[in-house]
Design a protein around this nucleic acid. Sequence first.
DNA 1: GCCCCGAGTTGAACGCGTTCAACATTTGTG
DNA 2: CACAAATGTTGAACGCGTTCAACTCGGGGC
Lengths: 202, 202
Amino acid sequence: MDLFRTNGFDGTTMRGIADGAGVSLGSAYYYFSGKEHLIQAFYSQMQDDHLAAARKVLETESDFAARLRGVLTVWVDVAAPYHEFAGTFFKNAADPTSPLSPFSPESADARAASTAIFRDVVEGSDLKVASSLRPRLPELLWLLHMGVVLFWVHDRSPRQERTRTLVAGAVPLIDKLGRLSRVPVVRGVVNDVVALLDSFDD
Amino acid sequence: MDLFRTNGFDGTTMRGIADGAGVSLGSAYYYFSGKEHLIQAFYSQMQDDHLAAARKVLETESDFAARLRGVLTVWVDVAAPYHEFAGTFFKNAADPTSPLSPFSPESADARAASTAIFRDVVEGSDLKVASSLRPRLPELLWLLHMGVVLFWVHDRSPRQERTRTLVAGAVPLIDKLGRLSRVPVVRGVVNDVVALLDSFDD
DNA sequence: GCCCCGAGTTGAACGCGTTCAACATTTGTG
DNA sequence: CACAAATGTTGAACGCGTTCAACTCGGGGC
């Protein structure tokens, strides 16, 4: 971890890692199938930290907007230490053939765990949305989360303030949009959107 | 191009490229600063092809939905030959430190050219949207395009049919949403969204 | 005591992307 | 024409991720 933080992902060598761990190069490969595998460790560590931090938020907040904002903001906090080399980190995750991709079958568990957080965000709140939309909301919020992550990766502002501002600004809009989804004129389009999502469920 | 198509990005070696071109390894590096640079060639080639194909669509269609759908579908057509190794292609593009990232300063020109297509899509049509939204629409459609690209990269269906279905299904919704944006209740939220976008224009 | 098996360890070796000092060729100038 | 500067060209060399045949070693089975 120190090596990655100091030298970045590409700057850190397997030989350096082996040396640092006091083992030979070959032994490093005995325990980790490759350099990518080391990222997995980060990935699930971050996920666990986020889950724990999110739970704390969800214990204290009951308002939907506050819950959503809390969960998203807390992710920025948890991910902050890794921001510097998050680029090369997510570079590998963007490869659809990589098991690290958030859309890959191998990530299904992690994705489900993450979606569960957002299900909790919705279900523990008093949010009222169009009935057709409700069951789709957790995965849509997860997608929003992925969008925030993408923004965060490209965010060069100190302490990732821009990402925090984005979350603070976007969440009330999501909240409003949720309410709006029940208005008759809007509900029609919302139902269409949900129908489109359903059609991709094979 | 043949080599990339046959062996994928990682499977293609600079030595192989040099051999195939009948020059030495060193010469390959004289003309291309690195393997990444070769992707740039694809990138702009595809962009040019898309621009040309999009223009043809925009010459014949006047309805907004038809124009948008045409431009997006035509991209899938243009990109189809490269779909196999598009993964490793976009893997590098996802790195925010890479000049290949669609959000990087180096891609500003390409991004502007692409956004211009969508400006044409909007301005050449009879679309009526909330006045505040209109100037933002081109970049929002470009963002939609990036979403389609992301979906396309992960699309394993033959001939990328799923992506085409997505476009066919999503475009009418965008169209409806555009109309909806003028309805008083909705307009408020739309204005808020635009205000949020504006606030990130520093 | 002996043997063996499997878990753990090692560093040489491979192919890769990339760099670079040396060389070859073309172009411009007197 | 000469000859220097600019423009190409080359393959050896470097460091990297990764592989693998050879090795060490502890602890059962007889």
